[in-house]
Amino acid sequence: MKAVRRSKKGQDTVAAGGAASLVALIGLIIIVYIILLPPDVREDLLEGNQSSGGNGNAEKLARTLVEESTGTLDRLSQDEFEHHLSAVNLYTTSSAEILFEQASVYVKNGVFDKSFKTLEFDVDSEYVSNALLSFRAKRRSGILTIKLNGKEIVSSEVPEYPKPIRIENLAPHNVISFEVSPVGWKFWKTNEYLIEDLKITADITDVTNQEAASTFIVTREEKDNIESAVLTFYPDCRVSEAGKLEIFLNNQKVYSAVPDCGSVNKIDLSPGFINEGTNKLVFRAEKGYYLIDQIKVRTELSEITYPIYYFELSSDDMEEIRDGNLKVNMTFRFVDDVESKQATIYINGHRVSLNTRDAFYSRDITNYVEEGNNAVKIEPEQDHLDVVEFKILLEEKD
């Protein structure tokens, strides 16, 4: 049998056709892949997004060095405050008053006839002293027993005009009872008492002016920075008559003693007792007369610590800065574009002033930075400086 030989030309044609198909398949896969990429990535791939020249390294180094929501910065123009309060008078007055009276009371006790009497009365003041019971016994026989709130205060035969009887156990509501002793074996007799002009009197103390108050105002800046506080006052009083003096600051008791009359008294106050806004000092005397003068609350403030922000610049950063490719920019964003904003900024010890009404402020601080650690301190030059955002940026130079 004769063998069939394939020509080399035919073999080359088959190989070339297979290679073309493979290339076409790979090309199709690449096209599909590019179509499925995100638009921004596809654009970068097709158009290219490469920087030319020496500025490419600068773009890579540009970044945010500091970004802070600073908030409100306060400035105190003094390191202590004195709050002077008006003088107060404290005193009590007492007067004798009739607490209860009854025109007549009749009680009797016999074998076949007995009648006792109970009376009730109220006392509407807790400041009662020296209470006395007095009466006239117009008719009297036997032993008279008088009880006040269940406690016996009289149990004897009494004359027509007995001495006033001291009462110790008065209450807001009181019950007083009258009884007379039995006749015993003398069944034909009757013991009786006809009491007239019955009165219970006492000294009533008026405490309306026993307490007085005075107020002072503390700002938020003062409150936030109080380190110590002292209350001083001068009480004009008589030692022999003066009672205990109590002082309250915002309902907190800060003093309870008999003060040194005729000299300045000093009390250390807890800063925690002092409120922002209105503060109330209350003076209360137990008894006696007080003229409290030269009332003063003095606060000493701690030194305010202003914010300091730190950032670092590498040797590569400084090289790009010196080559003129990068700069360091400082920006502020404020709450409005109406109020004046004033501050002093220290950059590595270099003093820079800020004075603007704009809501946004920017300044190039490239000349003040250095390789390694850098520090920026902000000190307000007004009572309040509201900073929404503070940034330090390493940026490409225009």
Rank of each mutant, 00 (worst) to 15 (best):
F248Y: 11
S270I: 03
D398C: 01
F334T: 00
T278N: 10
R351T: 14
P159I: 06
L132D: 03
A131L: 08
K163C: 12
A103Y: 11
D12A: 14
H83P: 05
S141T: 12
I167V: 13
D79F: 04
N275G: 03
G54P: 14
V264S: 09
A171Q: 15
S69V: 08
D358T: 00
T208Q: 13
D40E: 15
N149R: 01
S69I: 06
G184H: 04
A359V: 02
T92Q: 08
Y310E: 09
L394F: 03
G71Y: 06
D224F: 04
G272P: 02
V175G: 13
L85T: 00
G349D: 05
V175K: 15
Y161W: 13
L301M: 14
D316S: 14
E339V: 02
T366E: 02
S129N: 14
S95H: 10
T305C: 04
P39N: 12
I204P: 01
S155K: 15
I29P: 02
Y361K: 13
W185T: 12
T366C: 03
Q11P: 02
D124M: 15
L99M: 03
K287C: 01
E43V: 12
E312G: 07
R322V: 12
T219W: 12
S104D: 15
A137W: 09
T366L: 04
F135K: 05
G54N: 13
E319T: 14
L132Q: 10
F273P: 02
Y310D: 08
L326A: 01
L36T: 13
G349E: 07
A257M: 09
N265P: 03
E97A: 05
R5C: 11
G243T: 01
F178L: 07
D323C: 04
T215M: 12
F390A: 01
I204E: 05
P162M: 04
D336W: 01
K244H: 08
K287Y: 04
E276D: 08
C237D: 06
E157S: 14
V32C: 08
S21M: 04
T331N: 02
Y106W: 13
